[in-house]
Design a protein around this nucleic acid. Sequence first.
DNA 1: CGGGATCCAACATGATACTG
DNA 2: CAGTATCATGTTGGATCCCG
Lengths: 120, 120
Amino acid sequence: MRIFSKNAESVDFCPVRDVFGRIGDKWAVLVMLTLGQTGSPLRYHQLQEAIGDISQKMLTATLKNLLEDGLISRQMYPEVPPRVDYSLTTAGQSLLPHLYNLAQWANEHMRPAKQNGAIK
Amino acid sequence: MRIFSKNAESVDFCPVRDVFGRIGDKWAVLVMLTLGQTGSPLRYHQLQEAIGDISQKMLTATLKNLLEDGLISRQMYPEVPPRVDYSLTTAGQSLLPHLYNLAQWANEHMRPAKQNGAIK
DNA sequence: CGGGATCCAACATGATACTG
DNA sequence: CAGTATCATGTTGGATCCCG
């Protein structure tokens, strides 16, 4: 089974690569977990505050990526001042459990290790 | 629940962050999947050839990271010419199913749309 | 308020050459 | 064979200013 291929000839469209890319995207995970935790839509600034150390540029870019991937949705209210909020799509919600599984795995398996002098 | 925190004050040691970091590491995933597919230990060059488009520098760095995380193990044979092979540790093997789950999720949910490389 | 655009520093990564 | 060291370059992310 070729699950993650990448050859000069067969750069076959690989959604798996995309997902791992997105999951590897620290900010994307943060945004999704944050949205998942609150359960309700969050506004731009609420996300920024909840995450804490994300820059405006990164938040904007991350939201854009997640939108393009169909993992979150954006709702805009034509008010003054403008209001926008983001929420997980069905697809986004279905990914969430996997993130939690990984988190749980991490807590179970990565605790004891990390000792060979390299604890940053 | 704080699952992925990062504050100036509470940079609490977070294994979750490590795992997502490693999973986001394209090369690390490649190495683990490759080792998982063959099932038996692989030598340095075998890995390089199996993956195909990984540079020597990246392979070395990736292997080092995976070793530090305790996800793979390294066996060295004091022969001439030298021989070294790598295999998944128990921890590494236990992570593999999660990777496959994600891959499967990706194939199920990321099919429609999505054409531009997004992450750039 | 919710971004877009720009500049720049830091880092990741590839290519190449060399070593035990 | 299995790496290490060095250089060159592309990419990432933060800071800043601006606009509708």
